[in-house]
Amino acid sequence: MSYIRNNEFVWKKIGGESFILDVANEKSHSLNESATWIWCFLDVEKEFDDIVTEFLVKFDAPVEIATKDIQNILMDLNNLNLVIKQ
């Protein structure tokens, strides 16, 4: 399973977090630090396992918890159409 960021959105990184405008749905989204890292990492298509591996280099977290968190974040981002699942 691979993922890529949907580049239709205008966004800004603010500190470690980010603000994304979803004009089509008249919404704005704020991403926390880990979701922002994933969002930035997905500028090109990445395999799920690669996301987990790189995430663990950046964040100090147990593998199982990190994997679960990444799954949840990707699911949320995908539901919001911010990330496309390939």
Binding site: I14, E17, F19, V23, S28, S30, L31
Partner: peptide
């Protein structure tokens, strides 16, 4: 309040911007 919440609130207070305006 957090930086992102502040960002969102100042953004929504801009005059002359609307959701219809899609000028990126």
């Amino acid at each position: 309040i957090s930086k992102t919440a502040a960002f969102q609130r100042l953004f929504s207070s801009f005059v002359g911007w609307s959701w219809e305006n899609v000028d990126h």
